[in-house]
């Protein structure tokens, strides 16, 4: 009873700033911009933006996978060190997040652009400028760079909890390193992988700043379109419909994640 009471402030907060705004988004998405009547035309207009949705999903998915490939070994290595070193390394991973995300993205612009650091260096040794910026690669780089800590954190917290006795037991029973990893460590870190992927994928799929700064006029993402609907085109209804579709997509992601972790709880309890 007491516990419920303590959760009160948060429930009020959530109702005010999460539930009510969501209802407003839903209302805008389902009404006409001029007459204010119920309509599905905003949602029907989504088909024009299908390529942009798919492009966003594609780039975000690739970024999540790259984050996983880069992040897993890092998280594993941190988990193997002593407690003091661990705290220090963990802080290092978090360190970039102390600087504004916008600034860090702008820094990449200064590094990658045609007159930027890399290309002016190359120019000095006589190589003509490489097309680094305004490519899909640059957008993925921006996403990976910005969201990598979100992958490492959950992986680390899961890996650190793996009982070393399980690893030892596997070794005693004759597993080599690859087998220990494949049969013990990896399966036990699945919850971390899933929540890491979700934590990278969700912000990456809805980002707008990264693609505006590092992408070309041909790499517009769904976040850019939503932003423009609210900022300049003044069509909040269409913008709300896009947000709604994106939100449903994200809910599906979270739902899947819960399924995985739910299954794993069962494994634990067995």
């Amino acid at each position: 009873m007491k516990n419920k009471f303590l959760a009160g402030p948060y429930l009020v907060w959530m109702a005010l700033f999460t539930i009510i705004p969501l209802v407003i988004v839903l209302y805008f998405a389902l009404t006409d911009s001029v007459t204010g009547r119920f309509t599905l035309s905003n949602l029907a207009a989504m088909k024009d933006y299908l390529p942009i949705f798919l492009r966003s999903i594609w780039l975000a998915a690739i970024s999540s996978i790259i984050c996983l490939i880069l992040g897993y070994p890092v998280a594993w290595c941190i988990a193997q060190t002593g407690p003091k070193v661990q705290r220090f390394l963990y802080m290092l991973v978090m360190l970039p997040m102390c600087i504004s995300f916008l600034l860090r993205t702008l820094a990449w612009v200064a590094i990658l652009e045609d007159t930027g650091m890399i290309n002016s260096l190359l120019g000095r040794i006589g190589i003509s400028p490489l097309p680094l910026i305004r490519t899909n690669g640059a957008v993925i780089l921006g996403m990976v760079y910005n969201y990598l800590p979100y992958m490492i954190m959950p992986l680390y917290t899961v890996i650190i909890k793996i009982d070393p006795r399980l690893v030892e037991a596997a070794q005693d029973l004759g597993c080599d390193h690859a087998q220990v990893f494949g049969k013990v460590t990896l399966p036990l870190s699945v919850p971390g992988i899933v929540s890491g992927i979700t934590m990278v994928f969700v912000p990456a799929v809805s980002t707008f700043y990264i693609s505006q700064k590092l992408g070309s006029s041909g790499t517009t993402l769904i976040g850019d379109v939503i932003e423009s609907q609210f900022k300049t085109a003044y069509n909040p209804n269409l913008g709300a419909a896009m947000s709604l579709v994106l939100m449903i997509l994200i809910f599906i992601c979270i739902g899947l994640m819960n399924r995985f972790t739910g299954d794993d709880d069962e494994v634990m309890t067995l």
Partner: peptide
């Protein structure tokens, strides 16, 4: 105009999904 282009994303994105 601003969002056009990248029709091949129907393919890529579809594959990814």
């Amino acid at each position: 105009v601003k969002t056009s282009g990248g029709a091949n994303y129907l393919l890529y994105g579809g594959i990814a999904v």
